[in-house]
Amino acid sequence: MLHLMSILLLLWKLKKSKSCVGISCRMQECYAIVFCLRYLDLFYQFISVYNTAMKVVFISSTFYLIFLMRFQPPVSATYDRTADSFPYEQYLLGPAAVLGFISAEEWSIPEIFWTASIWLESVSILPQLILLQQLREVENLTAEFVATMGAYRFFYILNWIYRYFAEGYVNWIGWLGGIVQTGLYVDFFYYYAMSKWYGQKLVLP
């Protein structure tokens, strides 16, 4: 729900402020790739209505966000591709593909794609964090958006702890990816929490 909330928060921000300054479209592009790699099973296996519905919502909303930021005025007029410049193609996609192949539990296409999507998701926030570091001042809706983006994976970790003790569930790849993903947020969370605690604007060093 936190993940869904972060997407809805971003959609609301884009509609309300008609601007995507401070928002990284490259991060959304990484998430679109993550979802496409991971949700291929939409076409050949059914787990639950919830599972299928959320996959469709995540894929369609992410592509819609990219469409808004890249091609739909007035939002796209405020998108600066030279500022949002983290070259994820070679820095993130390459390593995720290699790691996905090496660490897959079995060498089948769905499993390799799923594993690569876990690694890619764990670092997909980098373009967004790097963009915010350049801008330093973080507009408050953006801060909320990034905070929920960081919080959702932490709640997965809590669920994984429950599932490990309740049903012996083991997911090494997911656990490691989730720890990396949450770890990348820790310093942002610190400045976000401080800005909330002291009621000041969020300014990154």
Partner: peptide
């Protein structure tokens, strides 16, 4: 080549 990948999480 196409089996596997059963994961029940989003």
């Amino acid at each position: 080549l196409w089996e596997g990948g059963e994961h029940d999480e989003l």
